[in-house]
Amino acid sequence: MNAEELKQLKEQALEETAEAGSNEALEAVRIRYLGRKGVLQEVMKGLKDQPPQDRPLIGQLANELKQELQAALTDKTAALEGATEGPETLFDYTLPGDWHSMGTRHPLSKITERAVAIFRSLGFTVAEGPDVETVYNNFDALNTPPAHPSRDMQDTFYLDNGDLLRCHTSPVQVRYMQKHRPPVRIIAPGRCYRRDTPDATHSANFHQIEGLYVDEQVSMADLKGTLSYFAGEMMGPGVKIRFRPHFFPFTEPSVECDFSCHVCGGAGCRVCKQSGWIEILGAGMVDPNVFRAVGYDPERITGYAFGMGIERIAMILYGIHDIRMLYENDVRFLKQF
């Protein structure tokens, strides 16, 4: 096919395109000219039979034909669509999207996982224990005096066989140390139970995270450094900690730990009740009697432990004013997390 014939072919193809009245007709034109066994393919195959000096021109014309025809086909396709849809009405992109949405984690799980992730990054691993505990693990091994009020039936749920529902996650410490030699570095999130009458800040069923680090030469300065890092990661950069002396049977010295208010930065606001600080956790150096109970030598090793309430942190971070909301499981609440 020479150059002149090729030009004619182009005219013919464009004319057929213009005349095609349906998508099917257009597709037929496309296949006839541009298809795998189409006219243009034949032209290219025949190129080698042309005199060498003509080949560039024919090649160029064939290319022109291809591009112009493709453009014409595209335009005509659009024109045909426009014709069926009517004039100038664009798709309403403001319609609601339609894809199933992700579910959400419960706020208590979110806080737990976040705290666990922070401590895992410091080399802590998660340890677990049962909700039903022995009196020994829950109280005795944790240096709780025999007459301590928390042992009372008014405060702790006992089962018929004398075991109890753990009132803190600390028995996980005991279980873990009984089975492992130092170094021990664990974080133990879990459900706890106290015989509290439910109200806005009390729930008979609640969650704690316990932390324990035991090795040679662990000091209160280590505890401070670790909790300080945690405060910044959990509540936001710039959040600081402070210790106040306190008393727990299983640690000595014992402290309560406040975080500087993540909302006002310490200036005082509604969240921190104008004090600039929020009480978050209890901590201390593991009491030598706890080490003795698990067969560790308190002269050789030391350690720190800390514990915090997950509900409390969730309530502070999310601005939840009633603890019962966390267990209502209202979908309108859950979907916000």
């Binding site: 080399g123 691993t125 492992h180 280590d222 000595e252 010295p253």
Partner: peptide
């Protein structure tokens, strides 16, 4: 020691950067 700590001032205890031996057999 606790008496000393509370009178010395807990705010005067330094913060030591988190560190510690990796616990090999730990598994979660």
């Amino acid at each position: 020691i606790e008496e000393f700590a509370r009178l010395y001032g807990l705010e005067n205890i330094p913060e030591r950067s988190p560190s510690g031996r990796i616990v090999k057999e730990a598994n979660d």
